[in-house]
């Protein structure tokens, strides 16, 4: 077993168990999607017009939920210091953590997203695209969110602070993903949104580990 896979298994089992794991995230997502029709009214035309968009808002919010424990638990227990002494560079450790976070929280959300969207009145044909964009967008959410979580390590008010610094950075993926779904549903060219979303997610994977590692070093110093 390589150190990477050992670390990944550890992170995944932690993420899966962390505060209820995917059940909590998906439950929160479902609750957000429940609130929307209750607040804007149930007229079928009105809901189906915004179903894809609401789903994306729910995804962005739900993926923030478990971020505050992503680094904090290991930081407090000293595990972050220990793995930092090991063979892997801190950048890799952070990337592996985010990958596990994606698998434990964003991938289940990607499966729940089409169900919620169809429940809100989206066309059934959009289900595949919604799941795909949610899975790709989840990569951006996990990595950019991870950067926010690492930055908030030294502060003493984790959760809200992470949401405040991460959500403005997540406007591009929300726009790209929402646009791809809306255009697909309207029969317009939709691949541009998907391509831009993928580009954003890949750039996040490439760049944020350095920011996360810098933030962790700062917290550990």
């Amino acid at each position: 077993m390589t150190p990477h896979s050992t670390l990944f298994r550890r992170e995944l089992s932690l993420a899966w168990a962390r505060g209820g794991g995917p059940l909590l995230t998906v439950g929160f997502f479902a609750s957000v999607c429940l609130m929307v029709p209750l607040s804007i009214g149930a007229a079928p035309g009105r809901l189906s017009a915004v179903a894809g968009g609401i789903t994306w808002v729910g995804l962005a919010l739900a993926s923030l939920l478990s971020l505050d424990r992503l680094f904090e638990r290991d930081f407090e227990s000293g595990a972050l210091d220990l793995v930092n002494l090991g063979p892997l560079p801190l950048e890799t450790i952070c990337a592996v953590k985010c990958a596990a976070q994606w698998l434990a929280s964003c991938a289940p959300l990607a499966l729940a997203a089409p169900v919620a969207a169809i429940g809100l009145g989206a066309k059934v044909e959009t289900a595949g695209l919604i799941a795909l964009t949610a899975a790709i967008g989840g990569v951006a959410f996990a990595f950019v969110g991870g950067a926010g979580a690492a930055l908030a390590l030294v502060s003493r008010r984790g959760g809200v602070l992470i949401a405040l610094i991460v959500l403005p950075l997540l406007t591009p993926p929300v726009i790209f993903g929402g646009a791809a779904i809306a255009n697909f549903a309207a029969g317009l060219p939709w691949t541009t949104g998907l391509i831009l979303l993928t580009a954003y997610a890949l750039a996040a994977v490439a760049l944020t580990p350095f920011a996360m590692a810098g933030a962790c070093r700062n917290a550990l110093s």
């Binding site: 930055l151 908030a152 933030a215």
Partner: peptide
């Protein structure tokens, strides 16, 4: 929200 000024500076720069 960070009390330690040096750490606050580093995090804010990033």
């Amino acid at each position: 929200s960070i009390e330690d000024e040096v750490k606050a500076a580093r995090a804010a720069e990033i």
